[in-house]
Design a protein around this nucleic acid. Structure first.
Length: 892
RNA sequence: GGGCGAAUAGCUCAGUUGGGAGAGCGCCUGCCUUACAAGCAGGAUGUCGGGGGUUCAAGUCCCUCUUCGCCCACCA
């Protein structure tokens, strides 16, 4: 075999870009054409084109990539659909901010030019996002990439809107909506973030029209009194019973308004009387309906006091108006009291402006019928959350569903497919443009100026991306998809709505497994955010630590359902692992020169080989189990421990016995096995350490054929994932090897405690207990033990004679006498043995207590009792021997 | 006002059916042993938040309390 040589120093920059291009060129990102097997499909949660990817995307896309690569290697036709989201408000805000910096506005620019500008920005961000996904190694099918505003998806959006309108699930109406005065648009209830705010509560006296006296109301929003059209008290409130039906003069205005009774009122709160402002509060809106009160809107779209208010307040902001109104109330003697008051205030989830409940005409989706089906899909087990607890969030939202306001007063988005004929009053809801339809020739039609909520295109993402409403082969083959990987912050925005749309339009939930990732946080547990400046850019991580380190570290730290606290240095975990893999491989390849490969079928396995295959087998099983349960950290821990602790620390170390010896046939044999194990291990590692495993796979000798009967693949990405082989399992070898490790470690511990340098070999004698099961194994591995423990001459003895003048390492079933007595201090050794005895005594006490306790022997499982008895036997045995050692020491 | 999560080694966190407490980093000791000092070998460190209960057996199941965090909710 030729001695391939890896670079002395590991540097991921040397191959990552090249490897990614090789993957792309291999065609492996696309699902294979064999449609007969069960496909594994993920559609990406489309990142917003507003910005660039942050660590949250890094996590979520890393996990998707791990799943995709695992199932691809498992042989399933695997598809990961990439794409981006136009993100209506968010994107429009970014562009508008830019325009402001340039000293202009979108109104000045005009709608068409504004949209064009936005497209341009979309292109720029899109290329950055794509680049980032490539850099982190995302193995998605770029030939199927979609954008929520592309032609196909726009058509799907129109289809959905019109179809829902036809089914009476979309309607238009004038209601109180959540209005962001800064974005200038309505928002859905879910887009409002409620936060506790320190405010005040004012008590104001409204004088009666007839006669003296007045009624006091409490309010947190005094400025809205300008739009009051009533006062409500509880029907059973005796304090106010005599006032019901009376009228009050609304201060600062010339309006007279009635006092009504309504059981909504809480008698305990405030004064027990509440002002009613139907046009500016959802509860008041409802009360206004019940009592047929006028709705007086006192705010403009920009949030300024309008012409319905007394002249002096017009044009003021809410804040200014509040101040002015309070001042006027006070000076005219209407203000009774001001108190500090903590309450919840809604804020815009995009720009953080305080939300105004504001009356306007909007389009809505009737959610109840859709929600019922989405709930049923969960009840029937059609969808499953990982971790399970998120189903509470899902069902709670669906059970308390409210209609969805879908129209947005923006320019960036899907234009609502509705046209108005102002002359006739006709409302035309159409899949195609009626202005181009001869049937409407001669009529003056005006398209609805508004666009649809971004989520209105997102909720159909799992099937619109596959070509719907066309009946495409992709749709047929890949819908429903298999898994969704996303964050808990968008369970209602997105996940629940996708289930609704999937059932409504495709007749089936859009995915089966919903994996909810934790949030990436900084090391102090704080959310990463621009304002805190504690964000980490995935590209920076990829550059300094490598894409594999990025993905592996995130997976390793990603306990299911838990947030992921991370700092830049955390990624050392992954990069050190990559370095380890690189160097282990380098060692193997260095020793390839002059070796003749042995076909696996002709290789005889020694005990150590059997052991490593046993461990490999276990690790594959552990990986399979972890992946089936979406336990990414478990998968990562499994391969990490196997590669580092088993393969490197023991198997490779043990192989030096063969490779540094003179026997060419043995060298060939061991070298071949090292390669076989390495080859299979690279396949095992690939989903988690994709770049480096691919690079190494490509460096393995072309002639090397996998030991498990699978075929070498042109690229590792599409090679077969290792399988569990029953015949590789060998518990007896595993147990014996564990004894060997105990023995070696015992010697090493003594060496270390007495600071005996590695170069100094020590002679040793080993004595076995009579029935020690691993005796033969260890006896046959004496050369190996000699090497691993730094022993000079090793003897196996029958009695304890050799203990004299030696240091003893006591193990389960054996003891080792080390001829280093001259080097050590007896007192140190005595105290070491005494500590060991104390430890064993503690263990023994635990076990005997257990065994002597009532019920344990009777009720515990028999194997548990048996194990406990075995432990007692072993512990007593070790203890007894330790005491003899101590005796010998103290006597001499 | 409901619901959920967290509390385990100095730090950040794992711990899958209950059956002798783990990792990474940090710390201490000794090693530049011809794959790797981004390394090797060894070591120290825990009333598993408090209290109660179930059980032969609890970090793990139940109740309760405390402290953080998140989500939902129309109390002006």
């Amino acid at each position: 075999m030729k001695a391939a040589e890896l670079a002395k120093t590991f540097d991921h920059h040397d191959f990552e870009d090249r490897v990614y291009e090789a993957w792309r060129a291999s065609g492996g990102f696309r699902p294979d054409e064999d449609g007969s097997r069960d496909p594994f499909v993920i559609v990406i949660p489309p990142p917003n084109v507003t910005g660039v990817l942050h660590m949250g995307h890094g996590l979520n896309n890393s996990l998707q990539d791990i799943l995709i690569r695992y199932y691809r290697m498992k042989g399933r036709p695997t598809l990961w659909v990439p794409g981006t989201d136009h993100a209506g408000i968010a994107t429009q805000n970014v562009v508008e901010r830019k325009l402001r910096e340039e000293g202009t506005t979108r109104e000045e620019l005009g709608r068409d030019e504004f949209v064009e500008r936005t497209w341009k920005m979309k292109e720029e961000h899109h290329s950055v996002i794509t680049k980032q996904l490539e850099k982190i190694g995302a193995s998605c099918d770029w030939s199927r990439e979609r954008f929520t505003l592309d032609d196909g998806l726009s058509r799907a959006v129109r289809e959905v809107f019109v179809a829902l309108y036809e089914r009476n699930l979309v309607y238009r109406g004038e209601y109180l909506v959540n209005w962001c005065t800064s974005c200038g648009t309505a928002l859905s209830d879910d887009e409002v973030e409620h936060r506790e705010v320190n405010g005040q509560i004012w008590r104001v006296r409204y004088p009666l029209v007839d006669g003296p006296g007045s009624i006091e109301v409490a309010t947190t929003r005094p400025e809205t009194m300008l739009g009051d059209t009533g006062v409500a008290v509880h029907p059973a409130d005796e304090r106010y019973a005599h006032l019901v039906g009376a009228r009050v003069r609304l201060p600062l205005t010339d309006r007279e308004i009635p006092i009504v009774e309504d059981s909504f009122v809480d008698r305990e709160f405030g004064t027990g009387a509440v002002k009613i402002t139907p046009a500016h509060d959802p509860n008041d809106w409802a009360m206004g309906e019940r009592h047929d009160l006028a709705r007086i809107n006192v705010l403009t779209a920009a949030g300024l006091i309008n012409e319905n208010a007394p002249e002096k307040y017009r044009g003021m902001t809410v804040k200014e108006a509040r101040k002015a109104v309070v001042a006027d109330l006070e000076s005219r003697g209407f203000l009774v009291e001001v108190k500090d008051h903590v309450h919840q205030i809604g804020h815009c989830y995009r720009c953080d402006t305080v939300i105004e409940p504001w009356q306007s005409t909007q389009w809505f989706v009737r959610m109840q019928p859709l929600a019922e089906k989405a709930l049923k899909a969960w009840e029937d087990g059609e969808i499953v959350f990982y971790p399970r607890r998120w189903e509470n969030t899902y069902t709670h939202w669906l059970r308390n569903i409210r209609d969805w306001c879908i129209s947005r007063q923006l320019w960036w988005g899907h234009r609502i497919p509705v046209w108005y004929d102002d002359e006739s009053g006709d409302v035309i809801v159409s899949r195609t443009d009626p202005t181009e339809d001869p049937a409407y020739a001669g009529r003056s039609l005006r398209q609805d100026p508004d666009v649809l909520d971004t989520w209105f295109s997102s909720w159909i993402w799992p099937f619109s991306t596959l070509g719907w409403p066309e009946q495409t082969p992709d749709l047929d083959r890949f819908y429903p998809t298999t898994a969704l990987v996303t964050g808990y912050d968008i369970i209602f925005f997105w996940v629940a709505r996708m289930v609704m749309a999937g059932i409504e339009f495709m007749g089936a939930a859009p995915f089966r497994d919903i994996y909810i990732t934790g949030l990436v946080r900084d090391i102090h547990g704080r959310k990463m955010s621009k304002s805190l400046g504690n964000g980490i850019d995935p590209l920076d991580i990829v550059d300094s630590y490598g894409a594999d380190a990025h993905k592996f570290t995130l997976a390793y730290l990603s306990a299911q359902g838990q947030d992921v606290p991370i700092e830049t240095e955390s990624f050392q975990l992954g990069s050190k692992f990559a370095n380890k893999i690189w160097n282990a491989t380098r060692y193997l390849l260095m020793n390839l020169g002059g070796r003749t490969p042995v076909p696996f079928a002709e290789v005889t396995l020694d005990n150590v080989d059997r052991w490593i295959y046993h461990r490999l087998n276990d690790t594959i099983a552990r990986m399979d189990a972890a992946m089936a349960e979406y336990r990414f950290n478990e998968a990562a821990h499994g391969v990490y421990e196997f590669f580092w602790n088993d393969f490197c620390d023991w198997y490779i170390e043990a192989s030096k016995l063969s490779l540094y010896a003179e026997d060419d046939r043995e060298k060939d044999r061991k070298m071949s096995l090292l390669l076989y194990v390495l080859e299979e291990t690279m396949r095992l590692l690939h989903p988690l350490m994709s770049f480096i495993s691919e690079e190494i796979y490509g460096q393995l000798p072309d002639t090397l054929q996998p030991a498990d009967g699978t075929r070498r693949s042109p690229v590792l990405m599409t090679a077969a994932f290792p399988r569990v082989h029953g015949e590789r399992s060998n518990e007896s070898v595993a147990a014996s090897f564990a004894s060997l490790q105990e023995l070696v470690r015992g010697v090493r511990t003594v060496r270390s405690e007495f600071a005996i340098p590695p170069v100094r070999k020590i002679d040793a004698s080993v004595r076995f207990e009579a029935d020690f099961a691993s005796a033969q194994f260890i006896r046959s591995a004496s050369n190996l033990i000699t090497m691993l423990a730094g022993i000079g001459a090793l003897e196996f003895v029958e009695d304890e004679d050799r203990r004299a003048g030696s240091i003893t390492a006591v193990g389960t079933g054996f003891e080792v006498y080390l001829d280093v007595r001259a080097l050590i201090d007896v007192d140190t050794e005595v105290s070491r043995i005494e500590r060991a005895i104390e430890k064993e005594e503690r263990l023994l006490l635990q076990s005997t207590r257990k065994l002597s306790s009532e019920g344990f022997v009777a009720k515990a499982k028999p194997e548990v009792v048996a194990r406990e008895r075995e432990r007692v036997r072993e512990t007593e045995n070790r203890l007894e021997r330790l005491r003899r050692v101590l005796d010998d020491l103290t006597r001499s």
